[in-house]
Amino acid sequence: MLDALTIATGAAALVLAAWCGFAAYRDQPTKDWHFIGMAVVTFLALVQLVVGVVRLAQGDKPEQGTTIFVAYLIGSAACIPAAGFLSLAERTRWGSVTVAAGALVLAVLEVRLYDIWGG
């Protein structure tokens, strides 16, 4: 895996979590600019998914197993879109809380991906 991409994705997820957490603190639902932030973080997660699959196709192997690595890659790519769809269903401050929680989960998944790969 690319360490810089993992760090960038995790950091972007933490920034998104803080941003949406602040919106929830101010009693605001997710707005259009939050969805732009979610799109950026999702893009980074999708790039990481592609890089991970390419590395596996080239013959590189994660230390803790390919199956768990691929499962974490798919989960990290799906985390923010799932939270975004849930926030559309809940147009109150709890939608912002949902996205903030999803972004925190993504940051933890990034740490775990790094660990699974052997970092």
Rank of each mutant, 00 (worst) to 15 (best):
Q28P: 00
V50I: 15
C79Y: 00
P29W: 07
Q48V: 04
A4E: 13
F22D: 14
R93F: 04
A12H: 06
T98M: 08
Q48T: 12
C79M: 02
A13I: 03
K61I: 14
G102I: 05
W117E: 11
V51P: 12
S87K: 04
S76E: 12
T92F: 05
D3P: 01
V99M: 03
Y72E: 06
A57H: 10
A39P: 05
D32C: 04
V50C: 13
I68L: 07
R93L: 01
D60I: 04
T66P: 07
G65C: 11
A8W: 09
W19G: 09
C20K: 06
K61S: 15
T9D: 04
A78D: 08
G119W: 08
T67V: 11
L73S: 10
T98K: 05
G52T: 08
I36N: 03
D3A: 10
A11P: 03
A101H: 00
A89Y: 00
A71N: 01
D60Q: 07
P29N: 10
R26Q: 15
R91F: 00
Y72D: 07
L44P: 14
R55V: 04
P81K: 03
V54G: 15
W117G: 04
S76N: 13
A39Y: 09
V15A: 14
T30M: 11
H34Y: 09
K31R: 15
A39K: 14
G21N: 07
C79D: 02
L113A: 00
K31T: 12
G37K: 06
T30V: 10
Q48I: 01
Q64W: 15
W117N: 06
G37E: 03
A83W: 08
I36F: 09
V41G: 12
V15Y: 09
V51C: 14
V15K: 11
L2C: 13
A12P: 06
D3L: 13
V108Y: 09
V15P: 07
P62G: 06
A24W: 03
S96A: 14
F85W: 09
P29D: 07
K31E: 11
Q48E: 13
A13K: 04
I80C: 02
L104T: 05
S96F: 05
V53T: 06
D27Y: 15
L14R: 12
H34V: 10
A23W: 04
G119F: 12
D60A: 08
D115V: 02
L16K: 03
Y72K: 09
L56Y: 14
